[in-house]
Amino acid sequence: MTTTAVSQHQTKWWSGGKSPFNVEYGKLMMWYFLMSDSFTFGAFLISYGTIRFSQNYWPSPSYVFNTFPGAGEANLPLAFVSLMTFILIMSSVTMVLAVHEGHHGNKSGVVKWMAWTIVGGLCFLSCQAWEWHHLITGHHAVLVDPATNKIEEWGQSMRHNPWGPAVENMTYHGEKVTRPGPVAFGGYFFGITGFHGFHVFSGVIINVIMLIMAQTGVFERRGHYLMIEKAGLYWHFVDLVWVFVFLCFYLI
């Protein structure tokens, strides 16, 4: 089909004989998968929002997420999660650069930027592992039973939430004492960031496979780097979901 023939039919996408979407099949299906996946994430986040709106008290993220690896007990609200966000944005940029090199059929460029994207993904996963570990193994004095003034040390888990409202006039080994917070916080936090982390993990696996295929010249022989574009779509989607996880859990 010559170019002139194409331009004549540009406005008649539905007249038959060509795909009305002008997108390669696999890429189109990747888009539809991502659309359905966004509904999965959307349902989780909206469920979280519903429960949060049904509570009179919800812990403020600046109190919950205020630590940084190696900084001890220093109060650094949102610093670590900002680093994680920066890492993910950066890895999105390296991914789009890999796709860009793929458009020009530049094998070494694709390999280089895919490798950086994988590094970014692994950094993000390590950060998340540290954050989870820190939250679960934390010790926070919680007034479990006001009648007997019974205090227990809790970490953040699916069953326990130590981030309730502070109790006035009460300290425990020099630390402020709180009441138990809403239990749903842990389940939603670990469930949604875990589901996102699982997406990052599978994205890293996909990217490693793409890197190997690019390195061994599979795409070069095929004549195009469409697979890199499809993996890139998935990777950007992971970044996109993080925008909303970041918004819902850490910012507001």
Binding site: Q10, N22, H100, H224
Partner: peptide, 14 residues
């Protein structure tokens, strides 16, 4: 050529 038959109009890569 031969990228995909579904594509009628090709994007020029920037």
């Amino acid at each position: 050529a031969n990228v995909a038959t579904e594509i009628t109009i090709h994007h020029e890569p920037s």
